[in-house]
Design a protein around this nucleic acid. Structure first.
Lengths: 199, 199
DNA sequence: GTCTATAGGCCGATAGAC
DNA sequence: GTCTATCGGCCTATAGAC
């Protein structure tokens, strides 16, 4: 809401700590400390830990297009390939964190489901926006599919595959299950496309 | 290890509470209370909360075949259909819990990753056993696939799809993203099989 | 093996000076 | 808006009687 450097620093710190350690394990004094203030100041901006979580989820929503989609889309002119560039970026996050990466939205989703309705709705908004961005790519490629493709279902599967693949890579501390899953998804998308217009 | 009614009750209670509320949100007095004892007794069997978590994950491992795979496998003689019966059971859990169901192993995976090495390895063991059971079904159907199918990759994708689909259903409080994802997975598996031997 | 009782610490949140 | 100081509570874990 308000543009305040302290507020921004608090949200940034909370976002990083929630992603690294989870919501419940992160204490407000850790958040305040990482932002360079004390908890008294934190409560000036956020009346509760839960409201801070909502601000973090809103920040993810705002960062989706500029930080997740746009950089991947920029690396290819082929809309279908753009989808796989997004997935390739997740692969890069898994590797660059030495398999510590977990999707922060997915992790929060499972941690707070049935506990925090407002936050859950914001997770839903993040998922919906993610799928809408991916779906738009498949829509652009509609002419190259052999049949009428359900781009809604394809986008849901893309998110499903990303979440499941990232989760398995983290547990196994190996990129193998990620690559196996994505390669199968690619096979499937290829199977839907006319020959001569491979991805 | 030791067969003790109290110990069993503690593990059962912990399993249910961890699944419902997560590991961090569950307190040991809740676990003890649900098992009908006090925390002093809990510490007779488990020297720490982390060791109780390990016992829970071992109990999931022991329950995988009799509770997850066998009932689904029993409903069909077709090994490929058996895979989809397993997924259908997850669908049933999502619906019967009014969308509160989240895969307890996947939830623990994301909650404890990078926090508890021993527990993480047990999550890995659960995932590996799940994939091995599914892979064995695809192996039994090997003759019906058109090409040499990578059953390892297919099993990894099956777990990926289950985890991602269950997660989305919980967030969206709707079965739609689950069904969309599974229907796409079924399309893919069908596309790998010889015509005249559909699932 | 189960109990009572409690240690010791950290947490979310608040009050109020500046 | 940021600080100091602290409340009240709950947590994991322990000690020791029975």
């Amino acid at each position: 809401m308000t543009a305040s450097p302290t507020r921004d620093a608090l949200v940034d710190a909370a976002r990083d700590l929630f992603a690294e350690r989870g919501y419940e394990r992160t204490t407000l004094s850790q958040v305040a400390g990482a932002a360079g203030v004390l908890t008294g100041s934190l409560y000036h901006f956020f009346p509760s830990k839960s409201k801070l979580l909502e601000a973090v989820l809103e920040s993810y929503l705002g960062g989706l297009d500029p930080l997740v989609m746009a950089p991947a889309f920029a690396r290819s002119d082929d809309p279908v390939e753009q989808v796989f560039e997004v997935l390739a970026d997740y692969r890069g996050r898994v590797l660059s964190t030495n398999f510590a990466y977990r999707c922060p939205i997915g992790s929060l989703a499972l941690e707070i489901a049935n506990e925090d309705d407002r936050a859950c709705r914001l997770v839903d908004a993040n998922f919906s926006a993610w799928k809408a961005a991916i779906r738009s790519r498949f829509e652009l490629a509609r002419k190259r599919f052999t049949k009428d493709v359900d781009t809604d279902a394809l986008a849901a599967l893309a998110l499903t595959v990303m979440e499941g693949a990232v989760m398995q890579a983290a547990v196994q501390r190996s990129i193998e299950p990620f690559d196996l899953s994505i390669s199968q998804f690619r096979n499937y998308v290829n199977s839907l496309m006319k020959k001569g217009s491979p991805i």
